[in-house]
Design a protein around this nucleic acid. Structure first.
Lengths: 346, 346
DNA sequence: GGTCAAATTGAACACGTTTTCACTTCTCGT
DNA sequence: ACGAGAAGTGAAAACGTGTTCAATTTGACC
């Protein structure tokens, strides 16, 4: 038997555990892999000694041979001020339970995802990649990422909804927004609102485009006029200024749909503190996301909610299905939204 | 020369690049490691072919032999609602530039860090670990993490400040709070404030303890009475309720120090929307952190600011110094704070 | 042209694991 | 008691890279 070190420093290795337990190194490996055949009492003894020696199989070595790193790459423009931070938070917890870890990367805040960053991430060889950033073409992603199949979080445009696109290059979580928006418009209509403004998110983002078009569709279906569009970029500050412009320069509105909750906060603060308008008496406001701050008293925002738990479960499901069948064609999951009624509509 | 595959699928390997470039595999390795001797034109040619084949050295293999994973583990209780999310955000960007990636782990929100999670993280073998969670003893951390030397972000208590503790088990970033708190109290004193309340963070957290004790020290130094303590846990909701109790049941106060900005928001909303008090006319409020939301019009919070850039640079410096000298005794960096004046004091 | 130090090169080994493949030992039905 | 299938075992071969070391080439100087 080979002479293993007393591990005076550095991690204990499988060879050391094997020596201590009077078994082969292979047996140690098997003890840590559930679906291998090893006499139960033997496995028990090995695990006990491993615990005693503070031994865990080296993930780098394991990755080298198995091809699995158990890392899930996530690319975000901003960890703080976004719906995505909630999702990262919940995803990290869920993935931890499945034996994965979150590998975080930051791209520029203009939602552009450069190839350099993708290549950088690829170097870490994640098992899966979740693209929160939309402004990258699936083909670019697939070309740079040779192994992991990326998961797109997508907001289908009206008409695309049921279409099976079956793209084998990536998997997809579709978030439909019709239901939530329709509930919001119905509520507004009940208060007699007719003139609606849409406070945009970033121009090129599909989340934004989808929300705007779906809103148009819902308004049209109910015989209401098309929305006025105010420019924005999902940020508080831009929304604040855009709202001021909408009322000082533009035509104003009876209700504002903001592309996200942060934008809605900006709109609310502009209406109340700058334009001296009352919400909801003078203007009504609806957001998207339902982040933690939305229930705070200063805002108390009525908003279109994504079910976070459901969403996280769907993503984890996509990851596990993909890893179980690496060559399967593009997988899809679809979720719906609903309205959370608070104080900014009436 | 060994027959390398055409890489019909899967990553390109160093052997393939070597074959294509008519060099040895070792030369390819050297081409990617800057401080090795290789004829420049040769390195150029190898890198060109590597780029063409979309080749990057496998980090798992590299980690196996070099012992460096280029991963930095971060443990947080909450990614969304915290000062930490800002720090994670900025740290991730800075670390990316140095060739590292952020490995994110979530612990329970009660700030307790179980050994199981530490062992789980250890399996990924990060080069460095940043402990945002305070409720774990350095010895526990050092015992579970055999390789990485953890970095503690610490808020020294009054009196501990200059003391070189020289603990070799971990490195430390000290954040002093005297200056910022002193500036805040001086400002309040200028408005004639004498009765100050401190709205706590989580009881066991050193950030909280340090803020409370430093506030006591500053008040005493200026001949003002000791603060009334209202219980809290760094969250909006708890702060909201605690503020109501402070005024309905307790003695009230002329000014409130909240242990963090989120708590300050809760206090502000409780004062204005529940207690119908005016800020800053009736009660003045000061927070800690200066997060992004603190400048929003609804809050416009006067707060003790941590310089994020400076802080991130200090942490990166600690990481690099530690990796350059793995056996050095405990490293330390020390930073100060300052007050950001906005609208909640006067 | 000759000499010596410095720069460059590649074969062999090491890193710690999983996987494959024969081989041995059990288990159970006849 | 016998065979056959199942379960358990360990030696050896990967996985893709960095590092060591001795051999070779280059460059500068006289």
């Amino acid at each position: 038997m080979k002479e293993a070190q007393q591990h005076p420093q550095g991690r204990a290795t499988a060879a050391l555990v094997a020596e201590r337990a009077n078994v082969s190194r292979v047996a140690v490996s098997r003890a840590f892999n559930p679906h291998t055949s090893l006499k139960p009492e033997k496995r028990e003894r090995i695990l006990a000694i491993a615990r005693e020696l503070n031994y865990t199989p080296d993930r780098a070595a394991r990755a080298l041979v198995s091809g699995r790193t158990h890392l899930v790459g996530m690319i975000v423009p901003d960890v703080c001020s976004n719906w995505e931070s909630q999702e990262i938070d919940a995803l990290t917890t869920a993935l931890q339970a499945e034996g994965f870890a979150t590998l975080l990367f930051k791209t520029r805040t203009d939602y552009s995802m450069d190839e350099q960053l993708l290549a950088y991430m690829r170097g870490f060889n994640p098992d899966s990649v979740i693209a929160f950033v939309e402004n990258v073409r699936p083909k670019t992603l697939a070309r740079v990422l040779d192994r992991a199949v990326p998961i797109y979080i997508d907001y289908p445009l009206p008409g695309e909804a049921g279409a099976a696109r079956g793209d084998p290059l990536h998997d997809r979580l579709n978030v439909l927004q019709y239901t939530g928006i329709d509930q919001a418009v119905a509520l507004l209509e009940g208060y007699g609102v007719r003139r609606v403004a849409y406070l945009s998110g970033s121009h090129k983002s599909r989340a934004n485009t989808s929300r705007e078009r779906t809103l148009r569709q819902v308004l049209a279906a109910r015989g209401l006029p098309a929305p006025v569009i105010a420019p924005g970029d999902f940020s508080y500050d831009t929304a604040y200024q855009a709202t001021i412009d909408l009322f000082r320069v533009g035509p104003g509105a009876e209700a504002i749909f903001a592309a996200n909750d942060f934008g809605a906060f900006g709109a609310l603060d502009a209406l109340r503190h700058e334009l001296r308008l009352r919400v909801p008496e003078d203007v009504r406001v609806v957001g998207f996301d339902d982040i933690a701050q939305s229930h705070w008293k200063s805002y108390n925002l009525t908003t279109v909610k994504f079910d976070l738990d459901e969403r996280v479960r769907a993503i984890v499901r996509l990851i596990l299905r993909r890893l179980a069948a690496p060559d399967a064609p593009g997988l899809e999951e679809t979720l719906d939204t609903r309205l959370v009624v608070r104080g900014t509509v009436g």
